[in-house]
């Protein structure tokens, strides 16, 4: 029974393609990710990795191809609808709500759950207080996972680079996604921070029962936590499979080192 759950594909992408003015940024891209898998998307700069994320989350509409999340078609849905169907992401160039506090950044992520109506809001009725207190508690729990609880009252814009990356993950998790997309989560972190992050990512996958697809250039992180990999080169899939096999593939090594 649980075996069936494990082996079910949560994400099914078939022959996805998009071009920008003649440049095939992503071409004939297919990918299946199993439920609760930790999956890596790697490739040289400009390979089209972030573009894949933008296609999956509805920022771009594919010229062709199909995206199914848990059997549900995502192509043509808006960014916020896709989030509601169950995909949340972080950004390569960090995008936080800089003039809100760390706590508020996470609370915005609860938007779909902790609700009260406009009248509760403007009259500060007891229901508002109750709901706000609940989400304060939940948000603090989430911040603790990333060791950000002491920073809760700071403005997000004042966090260090590494902390900002972690806050982005916390905010994405607040929307209770089925699939979490992380775009270079370790960028700008030192090796200690990266080690920490690896543990946190594994912990998050187990605790929140979420499937994770991540883009990363740090091979230590990739080989350390990803179960399977897809290598992208010039917008096309170069190799796909178990992490170690892929990383030792001569073609992949060549793509990374150049000729």
């Amino acid at each position: 029974m649980s075996n069936i759950e494990q082996n079910k594909n949560i994400l099914e992408v078939t022959s996805l393609a998009i071009s920008f003015g003649g440049l095939n940024a992503v071409d004939n891209f297919s990918l299946s990710i199993k439920n609760k898998e930790l999956y890596g998307l790697i490739g040289p700069n400009g390979a089209g990795k972030t573009t894949v994320f933008n296609l999956l989350t509805g920022v771009y509409r594919p010229d062709q191809g199909e995206i199914l999340l848990d059997g549900e078609n995502l192509v043509g849905k808006s960014v916020e609808e896709i989030n509601k169907t169950g995909i949340a992401r972080t950004f390569q160039n960090i995008r936080l709500f800089n003039r809100l506090t760390v706590l508020e950044n996470v609370k915005v992520g609860f938007n779909a759950f902790n609700k009260y109506n406009l009248l509760d809001a403007v009259l500060a009725l007891p229901n508002k207080k109750k709901v706000e207190e609940e989400s304060n508690g939940e948000a603090m729990e989430l911040l603790k996972v990333f060791n950000l609880q002491d920073e809760a009252h700071l403005l997000a814009g004042n966090l260090s680079y590494g902390e900002q990356r972690k806050l982005e993950i916390a905010r994405a998790l607040a929307t209770k996604p089925k699939l979490l997309l992380l775009d270079e989560p370790a960028a700008g972190m030192n090796s200690n921070e990266t080690m920490d992050l690896m543990n946190t990512i594994r912990f998050v996958r187990d605790k929140f029962n979420v499937t994770i697809l991540l883009i990363e250039h740090d091979m230590k992180l990739v080989s350390g936590i990803c179960e399977r990999l897809t290598v992208l080169n010039f917008g096309r899939v170069l190799k796909q499979g178990i992490t170690n096999d892929v990383l030792n593939d001569p073609e992949v090594i060549k793509a990374y080192l150049g000729d």
């Binding site: 808006s78 916020e80 989030n83 936080l96 800089n98 003039r99 809100l100 508020e104 609370k107």
Partner: peptide, 19 residues
């Protein structure tokens, strides 16, 4: 809070489900 979040970063706000 949502309105200020959208002000600060519209793309990020949409990515976490805000209209």
């Amino acid at each position: 809070r949502n309105i200020m979040a959208i002000r600060d970063n519209r793309i990020a706000a949409e990515s976490i489900g805000l209209n």
